[in-house]
């Protein structure tokens, strides 16, 4: 469902969307069943002259309860297990695992800007050719990135909707994660945790570039804060 609203830009975006599909099917079934039954009963048992309501004694209640409560109870349990399995597997892939990554990018959030430290030409972070940018994140299509997220002042949240990625940044902590872009283009990075009066003016741009374009950018970076050309 989500793919109609937001393009799938990372390797795991389709898995999250698949999970949403599973939840959508299960919940829609139960929702329609419940609402359908609800409105049917409202129509069927509306007040009619001369008709008295049914009195349900304990024996009858016990019999009906099996049909109305016990069976749905078990069916919902099965549905829950399906949802849990899907949720845990997707969660484990996105948040628990750390695949072998090609490059690391360090992200620092502060009121109200993002600082991105790119590895630069040598692919190693914390070397002389690192490219530090503000509010511009450049990544290469198809490469697996590890990110290290930190915050300087208050809580922020690094959210890239096309990646289906979101992670809060907490001052004092370094939180890691990974992504693998699969769609070239220019996308939003948003702050998704209220961070003061400038929360609404804390956007950043994500540039997913083909290997050639990315190499070109590394050679001639734009909008950089710190960059030492050899």
């Amino acid at each position: 469902m989500l793919e109609h609203y937001m393009i799938q830009g990372s390797s795991y975006a389709s898995h999250i969307d698949g999970l949403v599909w599973v939840v959508l099917l299960i919940t829609t079934f139960w929702f329609l069943l419940a609402e359908g039954m609800f409105f049917y009963l409202l129509w069927r048992y509306r007040e009619q002259p001369g008709k008295k309501a049914l009195y349900i004694n304990d024996d009858l209640e016990h019999a009906i309860k099996y049909k109305w409560v016990e069976i749905p109870h078990r069916l919902i349990l099965i549905c829950d297990v399906a949802v849990i399995l899907g949720a845990v597997s997707v969660w484990s892939e996105v948040k628990l695992s750390m695949p072998v990554t090609d490059e690391t990018v360090r992200i620092t959030a502060q009121q109200w800007a993002w600082t991105f430290r790119h590895a630069g030409a040598d692919g190693e972070l914390d070397t002389a050719d690192d490219i530090v940018t503000v509010d511009d994140l450049h990544v290469q299509l198809g490469k697996t990135y590890k990110f290290e997220l930190a915050a300087k002042d208050v809580l922020h949240s690094f959210s890239v909707p096309v990646f289906r990625l979101k992670q809060d940044a907490i001052p004092g902590r370094v939180i890691s994660g990974w992504f693998k872009p699969t769609q070239a283009g220019e996308f939003d990075v948003q702050c998704a945790e209220i961070c003061g009066i400038g929360h609404g003016i804390m956007p950043a741009r994500l540039y997913v570039e083909t290997p050639e374009a990315h190499a070109e950018w590394i050679a001639h970076p734009t909008h950089y804060l710190a960059y030492k050309n050899k």
Partner: peptide, 14 residues
């Protein structure tokens, strides 16, 4: 040893 920009690298997660 980590750089000054406030986000020292620490690979404890791996």
């Amino acid at each position: 040893a980590a750089p000054a920009e406030g986000a020292p690298a620490h690979p404890a997660g791996e």
